Amino acid sequence: MKKLVRRWWEKRGKLQVTPSWQNYFWRLRLGWDHRGVKANYRRGPSTFGISLQRIEAGEQVTSYGGLEPILYKYVHYDLMVKTSYSHSFQNGLTAGMAINYLYSSQASGTRISTQLVAPNTSVSLDLGANYQFPKIQSSGFILSPHLGMALTDFGAPSHYADPDTKHPLATTLRLGGGANIALNKKVYGWQVVELSVMQNVSKVLARIEVKSNDNGFYRNAMNPFKALVKSWGTYEYYDGPRIKKSNFSEQLWWHSGVELKFLETIALRWGYQKAGKAEEEMSYRALGAGIDLYYLVFDYTHIKNDEDDNLLVGHHWQITGRIPLDGTRPDTILNMLFD
């Protein structure tokens, strides 16, 4: 037993921790406060992760000529917990899964219009896989392509704002690929230049059905297993008072990204998301930069869309800490500059 413990201790991996704090503002709210922390522990081919996020909403402000829309909840908070595990196989395949838990206080004890809203919980599942192709190496560069897919937020419908109506979770199927191109030249052991490109496409697999009972017609979430099959055709949606249709191609979301990294330390990034027709306001462009000092990683992103009416629009800062638990002390660019 002592030998097993010693062997496990000697193979200790790396712990990575990322705190998060954001303040979001919108015309109907005084603001949302977002606080949380993400951590993952990598040991050999296995990676364990946990994420805790809490979003608290401020009071709703009067708008639209004194009318307060009843579709938005009053003071409440949401708590999101995610646990994940992934395993990398020797053939280049990595597979993983995650369990998500969401608790929403939903303005417990207050009324929205004439409706008393109670707290709500939901549980969902993420599944994903990525295949890393063998590297293609020449005298000038090293090419590392990969393909991946994921099904996220798959779970039972949830009573979100109306206890008499079930709303579907945003189950999403994602497919995509990318490549890392590194100049076959190193300085002080670091790659001089690396270029990473990514192109993904995603499709929401969730539907709301119109049903009938003795009281008339009502809307309810489609069974999530049924929605996996029935969410590929054209559907109708409301755009204000008008009813519009969205065909398959108009339901696709496109995600593109490029990162240019120098000496494995300084990164410049560009990203673009084109949302589906019914969610066009969620399309945005992003520019970012990062500095990776191994023990500390600093990242900045600026997000913008055409409407400037999105909670994500604006400046985003992130700091990540890495803790090597195996006793190693990797060099950083600071060693090259100051040694």
Rank of each mutant, 00 (worst) to 15 (best):
S231Y: 05
N223M: 00
L260H: 09
M282G: 03
Y218I: 02
I243R: 05
R242S: 14
W253Y: 11
G276R: 11
K274D: 13
F262T: 06
G257C: 13
G276Y: 10
A278W: 09
Y284E: 03
G216W: 06
A221Y: 07
R285Q: 14
E259A: 15
G216Q: 04
P241Q: 05
L228T: 03
E250Q: 14
H255E: 12
R219N: 07
Y237T: 09
R269C: 05
M282I: 08
A227V: 02
F248V: 04
S249D: 14
F262V: 03
L268S: 06
L228Y: 01
E250C: 02
R269G: 02
N223K: 08
Q273F: 12
K244Q: 07
P241I: 06
W254G: 07
S231T: 04
D239T: 06
K274G: 11
L260N: 09
S212D: 06
L263F: 13
L252I: 00
T265Q: 00
A267V: 06
E281S: 13
F225G: 00
W232I: 08
N215T: 15
Q251Y: 03
I266P: 04
E236V: 01
L252F: 10
E279N: 14
A221C: 04
R285C: 08
E280W: 12
E236M: 09
Y272L: 11
S246Y: 09
T265E: 04
G271A: 11
G233E: 14
K261H: 03
R242P: 02
A267H: 11
S246N: 12
W253G: 15
Q251P: 07
N213S: 01
F248Y: 12
Y218S: 00
E279R: 09
A278Q: 13
H255D: 11
P241L: 00
Q251I: 09
T265D: 03
W253K: 10
I243F: 05
N215I: 05
K277W: 02
Q273V: 15
W232P: 10
L260I: 09
Y218F: 12
K244L: 14
N215E: 13
N220D: 14
K277C: 10
G271S: 03
H255A: 07
T234I: 08
G233L: 00
K274M: 13
D239Q: 13
G233D: 15
E236A: 15
I243S: 06
S249F: 05
N247M: 06
W270F: 15
W232G: 02
G216F: 05
E280V: 04
N215A: 15
S246K: 06
S256L: 08
M222Q: 10
K230I: 04
E250G: 01
K226I: 02
N215C: 04
A278I: 00
K277V: 11
A221I: 01
Y218L: 01
F225Q: 10
F217L: 12
H255P: 08
G257V: 09
T265W: 00
A286T: 07
G216P: 01
A278G: 08
F225P: 02
S231P: 00
G257T: 02
G216M: 05
N213H: 04
R269T: 12
N220W: 04
A267N: 03
E280P: 10
G240L: 03
I266D: 08
E280D: 14
Y238K: 09
L260F: 12
G271C: 06
E279K: 14
N215F: 09
K261S: 11
P241Y: 07
M282W: 15
K230F: 11
A227K: 10
K244H: 00
S256V: 09
M282V: 01
D239R: 07
L268Y: 11
